[in-house]
């Protein structure tokens, strides 16, 4: 694993998804919610990109927007492009998107119970996906279903085809969801907090499973989470979001060893460590994230920032490179010196 970390597993690969200046808003009775405010990022083939941030930072909404899975209205994609293999997903019709969602890009969610139909057997739910998207006949679909369930580590899959979702535990249901997502060999898997509802030992099982399958079938993964621990173990690159903006992106090692945005640095300081003796109080970030009901002006983190300067309150910094290795941050200040960059 370590060697892959150093080499940068995906250096030579082509870009799979290229998102440019994506903006998503929700028009609610209370006013406009500025959920995603012009974010640009890309994912390469076979790469794992982690999207990290606290609740309400826009990490899920941005991915749902790309797949046109947000409800319009109240939602609105106010601008931007999402180029998947060069084609803009935001311009696709609903029926075109349905084909893409099943076959090219798959998604798994935090709560597998609400994404599985409780009155259909597991076998039927998986084979149906295969029959509609791949045009398989019943026999072929069944054979592939058993193969998929075996792949996600469900023992004795042939006998469990007739079981219903409630007969599976939370971790097992998430495995079934992964099997459904993998049914059509997608090139990109978007995992939206897939382990948040699970216990730590089950989380370890799922993380191991996704990593193994990713390497087996050479699939790109976007892993949305708030847990910086899980990210360290699974990601190639990390993107940190705050109040609808990307504030820092870097390779995983660079981000953890040399965080350059005050928010990232504070988040890492707020984490206790299971592998070390306690040596300091946790660093807490005062205050709370800004209201998304106000059109953003200035740096969104400026109200809670320790190294804030006057300029932060009026100009929102753009994502610009620091050092090498595609390490980008959106900050006016050098956090080591506290001086403007």
């Amino acid at each position: 694993m370590l060697s892959t970390l150093e080499a940068g597993r995906c250096e030579s690969m082509g870009t799979l998804l290229d998102v440019k200046d994506l903006k998503t808003r929700f028009h609610t009775p209370e006013g406009t919610v500025y959920a995603v405010n012009g974010i640009s990022f890309h994912v390469k083939e076979g790469e794992t990109l982690a999207v990290v941030g606290e609740s309400g930072c826009g990490k899920s909404v941005s991915m749902l927007s790309i797949l046109q899975l947000i409800l319009v209205p109240p939602g609105e994609i106010a601008g931007g492009q999402a180029l998947y293999r060069g084609v803009d997903l935001l311009k696709k019709s609903e029926s075109e998107m349905e084909a893409i969602r099943g076959q090219e890009v798959a998604m798994i969610f935090q709560d597998p119970m609400t994404s599985l139909n409780p009155v259909l057997s597991i076998g039927r739910q998986i084979s149906e996906t295969l029959r509609t998207h791949k045009g398989m006949d019943q026999k072929e679909a069944n054979r592939r279903t058993i193969e998929l369930l075996e792949m996600v580590g469900i023992s004795d899959p042939a006998h469990r085809l007739g079981d219903y979702p409630h007969q599976f535990s939370g971790g097992m249901r998430q495995r079934v969801m992964i099997a459904i997502a993998l049914a059509c060999n997608p090139s990109l898997l978007i995992a939206d907090e897939p382990t948040t509802a699970l216990d730590v030992t089950i989380q370890a099982q799922i993380v191991e499973l996704v990593t193994k399958i990713r390497d087996q079938v050479h699939m790109a993964v976007i892993w949305i989470t708030h847990d910086l621990g899980v990210v360290a173990g699974i990601a190639d690159r990390v993107m940190v979001m705050y109040a609808g903006f990307i504030v820092e992106e870097a390779s995983v090692v660079e981000l953890y060893e040399n965080p350059c945005h005050p928010y990232t640095s504070a988040l890492l300081g707020a984490l206790p460590r299971v592998d070390r003796r306690r040596d300091h109080r946790l660093k807490s970030i005062p205050g709370a994230p800004p209201s998304l009901l106000v059109e953003p002006h200035g740096c969104p983190f400026s109200a809670r920032c320790e190294v804030v300067i006057d300029r932060c309150k009026t100009d929102n910094p753009l994502l610009t490179p620091v050092g090498q290795d595609h390490h980008n941050i959106a900050c006016w200040v050098d956090i080591n010196t506290g001086a403007p960059r």
Binding site: R277, R278, D279, H280, R281, P286, G287
Partner: peptide
């Protein structure tokens, strides 16, 4: 405790 905060930090009040 290895390092206990020697003095209680003054909290900034949330409004």
């Amino acid at each position: 405790m290895e390092t206990t905060a020697s003095q209680i930090p003054i909290l900034t009040l949330d409004d």
